[in-house]
Design a protein around this nucleic acid. Sequence first.
DNA 1: CGCCTTTGACCGGCGC
DNA 2: GCGCCGGTCAAAGGCG
Length: 191
Amino acid sequence: METYPTFYSSSSTTPPAAASSLSLNMVNSHPHHAYSNDQYQASNNKSNGFLGLMSEMEVSNSINSMSSISQSMKSFGEGESNTAVRAGMKKGEKKIRKPRYAFQTRSQVDILDDGYRWRKYGQKAVKNNKFPRSYYRCTHQGCNVKKQVQRLTKDEGVVVTTYEGMHSHPIEKSTDNFEHILTQMQIYTSF
DNA sequence: CGCCTTTGACCGGCGC
DNA sequence: GCGCCGGTCAAAGGCG
């Protein structure tokens, strides 16, 4: 993979390297950074100055599932809601659309290492976008957290990462691959 | 050898 | 019902 030293965060409050490993906490403690349904239905169009994320989403109209996140944000902390979706649920039950949390990052690299181990399980072309979207799943056993990464055609320096679910386990790359992390952090901070 | 990508097929939901 | 679309599966191959 090409590793370029550029890594900016478009968000004002989340520093790059930290954002990765802190994404979980960030979601918890700073709901205004999270993409919740509340926000979605509250602000259809105008609003919250969400870093223009919303408008970007509208531009690439492809994340249509975003619009279907009109369920409860309560299932937020559960992360189990995933399993319900895929596992056999009774026919009476409605599908639970888990909340997703998207944030965009200005980066040359698609692979933003957030400390978890991800296995890619799909890649699809995105309409109105020349770049494909990649689907990843957390490889930790029993952890069904997913994320998808996509780049904007409009501004190919921007990478949108959408997380789905919550990790119910600690970050795997700790002491084991710590050198790896250090290497990457050096890359990210080498400016 | 184990873990990961790649890639086309497949599936379920939705609009027509 | 049909076709499109977003999302997922799984076989095959790559790589350290």
